[in-house]
Design a protein around this nucleic acid. Sequence first.
RNA 1: GGUGCCAUAGCUCAGUUGGUAGAGCAACGGACUGAAAAUCCGUGUGUCCCUGGUUCAAUUCCAGGUGGCACCA
Length: 310
Amino acid sequence: MTKTLIIVLGPTGIGKTNLSISLATHLKTEIISADSRQIYQELHIGTAVPDSQQLHTVKHHFIQSHSIHNYYNASQFEIEVLQKLNSLFENYDTVIMSGGSMLYIDVVCNGIDDLPQIDPDTRIQLENRLKNEGLESLRTELQKIDPEYYQLADLKNHKRILHALEIYYSTGKKYSSYRTNVKKVRDFTILKIGLNTDRALLHERINLRVDQMIQNGLIEEARKVYPYKQLNSLNTVGYKELFSYFDHEITQEAAIELIKRNSRRYARRQLTWFNKDQAINWFNINQEETIISFIDDTLKEITIQPQQNR
RNA sequence: GGUGCCAUAGCUCAGUUGGUAGAGCAACGGACUGAAAAUCCGUGUGUCCCUGGUUCAAUUCCAGGUGGCACCA
């Protein structure tokens, strides 16, 4: 029997959660969340995790399963999801994955190169050097060490430069030597369902959802994790803006407006990424019936002609 | 009803001694293989309220209209 992973994706606030629960109920299966922030157990309101009723209806994985205090990345997500899928496919022919974290979805579909573990001190040292010497100096260094990567790197993006250098200083080998540019092949079929709607309506939904989060107690939730605000996991829309408010840098109203704006911008970046992916089957919101019959039809085809990504 | 002021980008406004215009915010486009809700790069998107008049040329000057605000009745 061919196994199929159905991926529900789309911009933030579009309604992926509701759709994925309907699909999982229809297909009698479970849901893997592909969301880089819903994965943190300390976050709840600001990340819009499914509510307890929804979690009760369908079993979810990678929702509030990790701590903000533990470093996490896309590569770990690939490994953990593949393990989870392995065991889920023992019981189910189809599994739903739902989320908006573009890289996390990509990593499950196409894999990510194996890189060595970087020792945290190297990163801290390089961050200090960036602060003291500036990006230009590190960039020149990278040009000497790894001209191949320098050629294609985003040279104004300090994270990219730093990453390449920290790999070199941790291992003595060039970052470019680890980049295979090879997509891993999965032993299951992938079916991508994209959800989208008019931009104006999407913005309306996002703004409304932020107001609801505030009503539901986002400010209190953010205050609880405020002591750890320097953690990467809390460099997150909905929290970082409130931290600025707690620090008396902006008013509460301004923070709320910024959460809305940054959510809108995040949605745009998601769409930029997803629009490149020709394999996505796009639907508008409120097309649940259409989507279900599309999936049913496609699953039938897959059992006849397996091993194709659609 | 009268008088005065205002009308320019999605919003708040600047400006053109007459040669079709620019700031902030918002917005839009793009990149992205271990921090990805992160990080980075790029882009003015305009019937200058409407209709006439003067002028080679009007968003700008003049008249009328419409809408808004203020004050006086």
